[in-house]
């Protein structure tokens, strides 16, 4: 085991398994619990990803690995990403434009993780190094991460800023599910204003509102689900209203159909105006018109 003293910072170190595909189930590997000294040091086979000339190096101690790995410029488009970065498990190190190491992470999908970093902190993501871990069980991933961390700490005496405790820049925040909005305090409460007015107020006060069947976390119809999917994939901050909620949105379906002069659900409003339903949103999304409209 590489005898690098990590003790001053050890408690705060934790590799983060970042996978944009399963953000909820992202485990937080604790450096401590998973790197018990009793674990025999496994030979990690780190493969440098190179589609043309794949060369694999077997690293026994994996200490020199970070230095030996090629620095790759972070591609700017999703298309380029799939060509240059593997969607495989492994360890990766992100560098800013001055070649300063910012963060070392492990991921079940290196390409996707780096892409999500690029989206959230583009200024810090200029270059990347990565090593694909074959047979990526938790232990070998952690081990690969550890060896890179140790190597970096050994050469620079510093923990990468993104790996320091309290730095949340690189952690993918689990998407906070907002609650669905309710139009009324309950079906048995006498409304003092007509429901139309409540709808009008709601869609004007919130920039993007989706009236859907079911809740946003569990849409009950395929069209509503697709709408939620599109809104979330675009990273749009939106409010949702469950038109099937007979307790708090009693009578909403009929009233909303009249209000918007639109016969079906889901319905998406932007700045108080109906944009359309699932078909329209889908086709706008395909044409790339959505970003402009929703981010205005």
């Amino acid at each position: 085991m590489a005898a690098v003293s990590l003790s001053p910072v050890q408690a705060s170190l934790s590799p983060r398994l970042l996978s944009s595909h399963t953000p909820q189930s992202t485990p937080n590997l604790s450096f401590h619990s998973l790197s018990k000294p009793s674990i025999p040091f496994p030979s990690i086979s780190l493969k440098l990803y190179n589609p043309i000339r794949p060369c694999s190096l077997i690293i026994a101690a994996a200490v020199k690995n970070l230095a030996e790995t090629d620095l790759v410029a972070v591609p700017l488009t999703a298309d380029e990403f799939s060509k240059k970065l593997p969607s495989k498990s492994g360890v990766y190190a992100v560098y800013d434009k001055n070649d300063d190491l910012q963060f070392i992470g492990i991921s079940r999908n290196i390409g996707a993780s780096v892409f999500s970093h690029l989206k959230s902190v583009p200024d810090l993501c200029s270059f990347v190094k990565f090593g694909v871990v074959d047979e990526p069980d938790r232990e070998s991933l952690t081990q690969a991460w550890k060896s890179w961390m140790e190597e970096h700490i050994k050469t620079t005496g510093k923990v990468p800023p993104g790996n320091q405790s309290g730095n949340a820049t690189w952690i993918r925040q689990p998407p906070k599910k907002k609650p669905d909005l309710r139009l009324t305090p309950g079906r048995h409460v006498q409304l003092t204003v007509p429901l139309e007015e409540l709808i009008g107020k709601l869609v004007k006060e919130n920039r993007v509102v989706a009236f859907i069947k079911g809740s946003r976390s569990a849409p009950l119809c395929g069209f509503s689900q697709r709408v939620i999917g599109i809104l979330e994939s675009q990273g749009i901050d939106y409010e949702s209203v469950d038109v099937l909620d007979e307790e708090y949105n009693y009578g909403l379906r009929e009233t909303l159909k009249k209000y918007s002069n639109w016969p079906t659900f889901p319905q998406i409003f932007v700045n108080g105006e109906l944009i359309g339903g699932c078909d329209i949103l889908t086709s706008m999304d395909e044409k790339g018109e959505l970003a402009g409209l929703l981010k205005k």
């Binding site: 002069n261 639109w262 109906l274 944009i275 359309g276």
Partner: peptide, 10 residues
């Protein structure tokens, strides 16, 4: 607009 076109069909 697309919305109006859909309205026509509806």
């Amino acid at each position: 607009r697309l919305l109006e076109r859909h309205r026509l069909v509806n």
